[in-house]
Design a protein around this nucleic acid. Structure first.
Length: 980
RNA sequence: GCGGGAGUGGUGUAACGGCAGCCACGCCAGACUUAGGAUCUGGUGCCCUCGGGCGUGCGGGUUCGACUCCCGCCUCCCGCACCA
C-alpha cells in the first residue's frame, strides 16, 4: 500500500466528460465515492485508528500517546438483525465518530471500539424456521453491518471488535456469572464479598445466617453439610428460586419483569404472558437497590434517564406493621399468625378498617376460616358456600387474569373475605381480612392495611364492600372529595397511651412508629419496586450456565460451579433450536429448553475434587442482557485469554479520575429504550465486580447521552393505505401521489409505512461525507428529528464549496498559496474555530457545521473563483471539517501537500487576539427597544458608550424633549436609555 | 393520576439575562447558459399608509432590558402507573 500512501489521490478520471459542462475536477458524488473508498482502504492498511494500550498485547505505539489524556467513547453495540440499517440507525454512531475524531485531533488518546450483541431471539427464531444454525445467520448479519459501518467511514479500532457469541467472549461472561454465584451481599458492609468469607464467619460463629436463609431454624453448628450448602446457596447473589415467573407459552420461555410489557405481553413477539411458579436462576440485584439509586447522583446522565431508573428502583420509606390474627374460626390446630403489612402512611393506622392480602400471599391458606361466621355480608362471600371455596375460585380467576386487566386502575375492585379478622395493633379493633387482586404479591409484604379515608383505592374497595371509612387526617374545609391523601392534622387517632391528634403527617408517622417499635408491633422500613433479576431462559441461542448438579447422593440437585479452568462451557450442537412452544394461551404448560434434548451434553462425568462423579448440566441459558452487561471491559483487550480484563488497562481507561469519581466510559451513546433494562443490569454487574476488586471504577458509564430518533413522513391515500413516500410530490401545500391527494403522517421509518430510506441509497447518491454532514446538521445529537431527503443537497453543496475553495475545479490543482489573509478573514477563521470547538464539545454538531458554512461562504466571496486562497486559512478549514467529513478532508489535506493522514494532526486553536474586534456595533435602546446602532471602540467604557449614543442623530431625535431617567450602558453590548 | 422534557418563520434549527431568527431546506428574483433538478449572486418572520407597528404557546411577575429567570395555565412528546 506504499503507493497509495504516497499518492492517496483517488481521482483517476475527470468527474464529467468534456461536453456536459461540469468542470472536470468538481466534487461530484462519483468523485466522493472514489475518494471515500480509497481513504477507507488506506486507514485500514495503515492502522490509522489503532488505539494503543498502556501495557500488554495492544501496547505498540503507546509512547506516542503516553502524555495524552485518555478518552473512551462508546456506542451501544448493535444487535445484527439482518433487517438492514435505515437512515436513523447511524445517528449515534456518527455522533461518537465525530467526537472521537475531534478528540483524537485535539490531543486525547481516544478509544472508540465497536462490537456486536449477537445472542438473542431473532436469530434463533430464524433458525427455528429455516434450520440454519443461528451462528451462521448471525455472523452473516455482523459482516453486513460491519461493511455498512466501514462505508460510513467510522474510526473504530477494528482489532478490538468482537461478538458476544464468540466463545472467547462468553467464556468470560460465564466467568463473571461464577463470580456472582460465588459471592453474597454483606448487608452490614453494604457490599458483595466472596462466599468463602461468609462460610468462614458462620463457622467461627461471628455471623448468623441472614433472615429467611435457613428453613430449619437450627443453629449453623448443628446443620449437616447439605443443610449448610442450602443455607449458603440462599445467600448467593446468583441463586435458584421457586417463585411465580412470567411464563410465555408462545415463546416457550420465561421472561424477566422488564421484558414484559405493561399490557402483559412479551416485549419480543407480543405473546401473552402468565404468572406461574417455577424454579429459576435469579440475580440479587435488589441488594444493590440503594447503591444503584444513590449513585445516580454521581453520574453525568440526563435527568429524565435518571428519573426513569429512580422510578424503576422505586424506593419508598414507611413501616412494617404486624396485624395478629386469632385462632377464632380457623382450623382447630391453627397457630396464631401475624399479617405483616407495609405502609408508607403508618400515621393513618387508626383509620385502618380492613386488611388485604394479595391472592397469592403464602398465608392465605393458613388464614382461611373453615366456615362463614353467621350473618356474613353476601358481598364479601362471592356467593360461595365456604371461605375456602370462595378463595379457591378467586385465586383461580386472579391467575387467569392477564396483567392488563389486573393493572387497569379503572376496573371495579374485587375480592373475597377469608372469614377471619385481624387485630389493629393501635386500638385493638378487629378488622376483616380480604384477598383482593389490587394488592400485588411482589411489592412490599404483599399485604396492606386498608385506610379508605386516606387512600383512593381503599376508599373504592370500601364502597364496593360496604366497609367503614374513618378520616384520620383532617382535609381542608373546602374539600368535598373522597379519600384525602394530602397533608393535614391527624384526627380520630388516639388510644389510652398515645395520641397523634393535631400532629402533622411527618410528626404523626414518627410518633406511631416509635410507639409500635417499643411494643414490637412494627418498625420503620424501606422497600423497593425493583425485584430480583430473573436470569434463566429456556432458549438455545444464549450463554450456557457454567453450573452442574450432582445426579445421585445427598447433595443431588444442588448447584455446583464448573471450575474456571473448564470454561467456556460451549453451546452444544442440537438438531432443533426451538424450545417446546405451546398455544399462546396455554397457561398450564411447562418449559422444556432445547438444551435438555442434547443428550450427550446434558450429563457429564467430572472430578470436582472428590473423585469422578456424574453430573447433569444446567439446561437453561442466560438472557440476552448478559453479554451487554460488561462489554465495555472487554474492549480494552478482547484477545486476553488470561483475564476478563487486565486491571492496569481497566484503571487506565475506566478508573476514577480523582477521589470520589465513579470512573467509567467517558461518553456512552445509545437509545433511550435501554434506560432501565441494559443500563440497570450493566451497572449492577459492574458494582459486583467493583466490590470483588476486579475493577477500580464504581460505575460503567460516567456520561451517557441518548441520541434522538429520526422519523419520516408517511402518506396514506383515500383508502387509508400507505403509498411510497419517495414518490409523493408537494404542490402548493398539497401532497400528491400519482396526481391524487394523500394525507401526511409522521412516524417510524420502515417498510410498513413505506417511508424507508437507507444509508446505502444516500451514500450512493451523495457519498458518505455528505450523508454524515447532513445527519449531523439537523440538530443536537440528543434531539429527535424528521428525515428530509430533499434537504441533503444542502450538505452536498457545502462540501462542494469547501472543495472549490481548496481545489481548482478546472485543473484539480490546489488553490492555496502563501498569501496573507486579510483581517476580516482572520477574524472569520478564528470565530469559526471557536464555534466549531464549542459545537463538537457539546455534541451540537449542527452549530459546528453552521460555523464552517459561514467561513466557507466568506472565503467564497472574498477569494472568488480565481484568486489564490491563503494556505493559512485553507488548511485550518480542512482540519475543522475533518471530523464531520473525514474522507474529503483527507483528500484535500493530501492535495495541500501533506503526506500523512490528518487524523492525528492537531485541531486548530482559536487565537483570542482575533476573537475581539477593534470596533463593535452596539445597539442603542430606548426603554428596551432597539432604535439605532452605533460603532464604538471595543474597549469603550460606559461613559464613552453613552456619549457615542447621544451623538447619534437618530438617538438624539428620539431623546429630544424627553427626560432620561436612567442610562444602562454595558460595554461591548448596548446602551439603554430609560426615558419618561 | 404521578414524574420528566419540549413549545421560536412554510420546514430543521440558532441566540453568556443584552440587536430574536445564525446556518440550511424550501420559495422568489437575477447572473452564467442551447438547456438546468448544476453553479454563483441577491432577497425571504408577519402587517404596513414605507413613518413605522407587531412578533419566541397563553396570562402574570422579577428586571433598565426576558426566547432565556419565577408563578399559574394550555398543548404536545416520553416514561411510570391499583407500587400501599
Amino acid at each position: 500500500m506504499s503507493q497509495t500512501a504516497q499518492q492517496p489521490s483517488a481521482e483517476q478520471q475527470p468527474a464529467g466528460g468534456p461536453d456536459d459542462g461540469v468542470p472536470p475536477h468538481r466534487y461530484t458524488p462519483a468523485l466522493a465515492q472514489r475518494i471515500e473508498l480509497a481513504w477507507q482502504d488506506r486507514w485500514e492498511s495503515e492502522g490509522t485508528f489503532h488505539t494503543p494500550n498502556p501495557v500488554g498485547r495492544l501496547a505498540e505505539g503507546f509512547e506516542r500517546v503516553a502524555g495524552r489524556p485518555k478518552f473512551f467513547v462508546m456506542d451501544m453495540f448493535p444487535y445484527p438483525s439482518g433487517a438492514g440499517l435505515h437512515v436513523g440507525h447511524p445517528l449515534g454512531y456518527l455522533g461518537t465518530d465525530v467526537t472521537s475524531r475531534f478528540r483524537r485531533m485535539d490531543g486525547d488518546n481516544v478509544l472508540h471500539p465497536m462490537g456486536y450483541d449477537a445472542f438473542g431471539l431473532p436469530a434463533e427464531q430464524y433458525a427455528v424456521q429455516t434450520g440454519q444454525h443461528p451462528r451462521v445467520t448471525t455472523e452473516a448479519n455482523i459482516a453486513a453491518i460491519r461493511a455498512q459501518l466501514r462505508r460510513l467511514g467510522v474510526d473504530h479500532d477494528d482489532r478490538r471488535s468482537f461478538a458476544t457469541i464468540d466463545p472467547g467472549y462468553y467464556r468470560w461472561t460465564q466467568w463473571i456469572f461464577l463470580r456472582v454465584f460465588g459471592s453474597w451481599f454483606d448487608r452490614s458492609a453494604g457490599r458483595a464479598r466472596p462466599i468463602g468469607e461468609l462460610v468462614a464467619e458462620l463457622d467461627a460463629g461471628t455471623r448468623e445466617p441472614d433472615p429467611g436463609t435457613d428453613p430449619t431454624g437450627r443453629p449453623w453448628a448443628e446443620l449437616d453439610d447439605v443443610e449448610r450448602r442450602r443455607v449458603v446457596d440462599a445467600h448467593r447473589l446468583a441463586y435458584l428460586h421457586e417463585a411465580p415467573v412470567n411464563w410465555c407459552p408462545g415463546l416457550g420461555t420465561v421472561l424477566s419483569n422488564e421484558e414484559v410489557t405493561p399490557d402483559g405481553r412479551s416485549e419480543r413477539g407480543n405473546f401473552p404472558v402468565f404468572r406461574r411458579p417455577l424454579t429459576q436462576w435469579m440475580m440479587r440485584i435488589t441488594a444493590y437497590a440503594e447503591r444503584l439509586l444513590t449513585d445516580l447522583d454521581r453520574l453525568d446522565w440526563s435527568d429524565s434517564l435518571k428519573q426513569m431508573q429512580r422510578n424503576w428502583i422505586g424506593r419508598s420509606t414507611g413501616a412494617r406493621i404486624g396485624f395478629p390474627v386469632g385462632v377464632a374460626g380457623r382450623a382447630d390446630d391453627a397457630a396464631p399468625e401475624t399479617i405483616e403489612v407495609f405502609t408508607t402512611r403508618p400515621d393513618t393506622l387508626f383509620g385502618a378498617t380492613y386488611v388485604v392480602l394479595a391472592p397469592e400471599h403464602p398465608l392465605v391458606g393458613a388464614l382461611t376460616a373453615q366456615a362463614w361466621p353467621d350473618g356474613a355480608d353476601p358481598r364479601w362471600t362471592a356467593g360461595a358456600a365456604t371461605p375456602a371455596e370462595a378463595v379457591r375460585e378467586y385465586q383461580r380467576q386472579a391467575s387467569r387474569r392477564s396483567e392488563l386487566d389486573r393493572q387497569d386502575a379503572g376496573r371495579e375492585k374485587t375480592g373475597v373475605w377469608l372469614g377471619v379478622t385481624a387485630t389493629n395493633p393501635a386500638d385493638g379493633r378487629e378488622l376483616p381480612v380480604f384477598i383482593a387482586d389490587y394488592v400485588l404479591t411482589g411489592y412490599g409484604t404483599g399485604a396492606i392495611m386498608a385506610v379508605p379515608g386516606q387512600d383512593a383505592r381503599d376508599w373504592e374497595f370500601a364502597e364496593v364492600f360496604g366497609l367503614p371509612i374513618v378520616r384520620t387526617v383532617q382535609p381542608p374545609a373546602d374539600f368535598d372529595g373522597k379519600a384525602w391523601t394530602g397533608p393535614g392534622p391527624a384526627v380520630n387517632s388516639a388510644n389510652g397511651e398515645l395520641s397523634l391528634d393535631g400532629l402533622d403527617v411527618d410528626a404523626a408517622k414518627a410518633a406511631i412508629v416509635d410507639w409500635l417499635a417499643a411494643r414490637g408491633a412494627g418498625e420503620a422500613t424501606t422497600t423497593y419496586k425493583l425485584r430480583d433479576w430473573l436470569f434463566s431462559r429456556q432458549r438455545y441461542w444464549g450463554e450456557p450456565f457454567p453450573i452442574v448438579y450432582a445426579i445421585d447422593g445427598e447433595d443431588a440437585d444442588l448447584p455446583v460451579a464448573v471450575p474456571d479452568a473448564m470454561l467456556p462451557v460451549l453451546l452444544p450442537e442440537v438438531d432443533d433450536y426451538s424450545p417446546k412452544t405451546f398455544a399462546d394461551d396455554d397457561a398450564d404448560s411447562a418449559p422444556e429448553p432445547p438444551l435438555s434434548r442434547a443428550a450427550d451434553w446434558t450429563t457429564v462425568e467430572l472430578d470436582l475434587g472428590d473423585g469422578p462423579r456424574k453430573y447433569r448440566r444446567e439446561t437453561n441459558t442466560m438472557p440476552n442482557w448478559a453479554g451487554s452487561c460488561w462489554y465495555h471491559l472487554r474492549y480494552l483487550d478482547p484477545g486476553d485469554d488470561e483475564r476478563m480484563v487486565d486491571p492496569e488497562l481497566e484503571r487506565y481507561w475506566l478508573g476514577p479520575r480523582g477521589p470520589g469519581d465513579v470512573g467509567g466510559v467517558d461518553l456512552y451513546v445509545g437509545g433511550v429504550e435501554h434506560a432501565v433494562l441494559h443500563l440497570l443490569y450493566a451497572r449492577f454487574w459492574h458494582k459486583v465486580l467493583f466490590d470483588l476488586g476486579y475493577v477500580s471504577s464504581e460505575e460503567p458509564f460516567r456520561r451517557l447521552v441518548n441520541q434522538g430518533y429520526i422519523s419520516a413522513y408517511a402518506y396514506t391515500d383515500e383508502r387509508g393505505f400507505y403509498v411510497p413516500a419517495a414518490d409523493v410530490e408537494e404542490r402548493d401545500g398539497q401532497f400528491l401521489y400519482e396526481g391524487r391527494p394523500v394525507d401526511r403522517e409522521y412516524g417510524k421509518i420502515g417498510k410498513s409505512l413505506k417511508n424507508m430510506v437507507t444509508p446505502d441509497e444516500m451514500i450512493a447518491a451523495y457519498g458518505a461525507d455528505t450523508f454524515r454532514v447532513y445527519e449531523m446538521s439537523t440538530g443536537p445529537l440528543d434531539q429527535s428529528r424528521p428525515w428530509e431527503t430533499k434537504a441533503v443537497v444542502g450538505s452536498q453543496r457545502l462540501l462542494q464549496r469547501i472543495w472549490r475553495v481548496v481545489v481548482d475545479e478546472g485543473t484539480g490543482a490546489p488553490r492555496a498559496a502563501d498569501v496573507e489573509p486579510g483581517e476580516d478573514t482572520l477574524r472569520a477563521l478564528h470565530r469559526t474555530i471557536a464555534g466549531v470547538r464549542d459545537g463538537f464539545a457539546t455534541l451540537r454538531f449542527n452549530i459546528a457545521i453552521a460555523r464552517v458554512t459561514e467561513l466557507t461562504n466568506h472565503l467564497t466571496q472574498v477569494y472568488g473563483a480565481d484568486s489564490p486562497v491563503p494556505r493559512s486559512v485553507a488548511e485550518p478549514l480542512v482540519l475543522l471539517v475533518a471530523p464531520l467529513a473525514p474522507h474529503v478532508a483527507e483528500e484535500l489535506w493530501s492535495r495541500l501537500g501533506h503526506d500523512a493522514s490528518l487524523a492525528w494532526h492537531p485541531f486548530p486553536d482559536a487565537d483570542p487576539r482575533w476573537l475581539v474586534e477593534d470596533t463593535v456595533q452596539v445597539a442603542v435602546q430606548l426603554n428596551g427597544k432597539v432604535r439605532a446602532q452605533v460603532s464604538v471602540p471595543a474597549d469603550a467604557d460606559a461613559a464613552a458608550l453613552e456619549a457615542a449614543a447621544r451623538a447619534d442623530e437618530k438617538v438624539a431625535a428620539h431623546l429630544a424633549g424627553r427626560t432620561v431617567r436612567r442610562v444602562v450602558a454595558v460595554p461591548g453590548r448596548l446602551v439603554n436609555f430609560v426615558v419618561g
